[in-house]
């Protein structure tokens, strides 16, 4: 009987090697798999390429992973915000690389990887510096820029409900990049607030089918990045 449940966040991330490319779900604080990220900090894999929309906030979660100098390169659309300081400081000192990708292009590159489509054409960035050096082509009289798929070795995902075969549902806008990243990684690791029996999620309500998921770990009372920051916490 298929059971993708693993017993702890530590065992869930234990085989992530140095140099891996890791997608991290979430948009800002919502949908960010904080417990899996902290487990990755404890595990210590370094020289990572991390894909997320942002670069974390405060000194917890993704910002703490970056601050712990485990990340060589960030691929994201918006690397600064009102509460991000770890990435900006390292970037200004030339200690971390940045690949800037418009948000919709980032989402579609990830989706394309999961869908087996090596590249696609988008109007986004046409006529801007972000299109420089990229192949363009005209369709129906309009120019489009070619963008390649974006794959990862691992994805760290947060969801609301999971079952043992890896079917997932999400909560509100915490869905964001999570379903796309599940599709695009070789190994998808999910933390779920509730782990239910097979059959307890109505098949009509499944958002991510279990075929895209490899490991599920229950984190029944997940911390939230905004709460940790408000409390002045840092990790480790």
């Amino acid at each position: 009987m298929i059971n993708k449940q693993v017993s702890s966040v530590a065992s869930a991330v234990a085989d992530i090697p140095d140099g891996a490319t890791v997608m991290v779900g979430g948009f800002g604080a919502s949908g960010s798999p904080i417990e899996l990220i902290h487990a990755l900090i404890d595990h210590g894999a370094k020289d990572l390429t991390v894909i997320n929309n942002n670069t974390g906030n405060g000194e917890v979660g993704l910002a703490a992973l970056i601050g712990n100098r485990q990340v060589r390169k960030m691929i994201c659309s918006f690397p600064r915000s009102s509460q991000s300081k770890v990435f900006p400081e390292l970037y200004k000192e030339g200690l971390i690389e940045l690949e800037l990708v418009p948000q919709g292009t980032l989402a579609e590159r990830i989706r394309a990887a999961g869908a087996g489509i090596p590249a696609f054409f988008t109007p986004t960035t046409v006529g801007t510096v972000l299109a420089e050096g990229k192949e363009t082509r005209d369709f129906d009289g309009r120019s489009y820029v070619m963008e390649p798929w974006l794959k990862a070795d691992f994805a760290l995902i947060k969801c609301e409900t999971a079952d043992p075969v890896g079917n997932l549902t999400y909560n509100k806008t915490a869905r964001n990049f999570n379903p796309l990243m599940c599709m695009a990684a070789t190994t998808t690791i999910v933390q779920t607030r509730k782990l239910v029996k097979s059959g307890d999620i109505d098949p009509e309500h499944v958002i991510t089918p279990g075929i895209f998921v490899n490991r599920v770990v229950e984190v029944s009372d997940p911390v939230h990045e905004d709460t940790l920051i408000a409390e002045g916490r840092r990790y480790p």
Binding site: S77, F78, P79, R80, P88, Y91, K92, L98, L100, V101, P102, Q103, G104, T105, T122, P123, T124, T125, V126, T128, L130
Partner: peptide, 13 residues
Amino acid sequence: IPAVGGAMDLVQG
């Protein structure tokens, strides 16, 4: 620090 978010997608689409 360059940060683009969804601005380029919005203006094109």
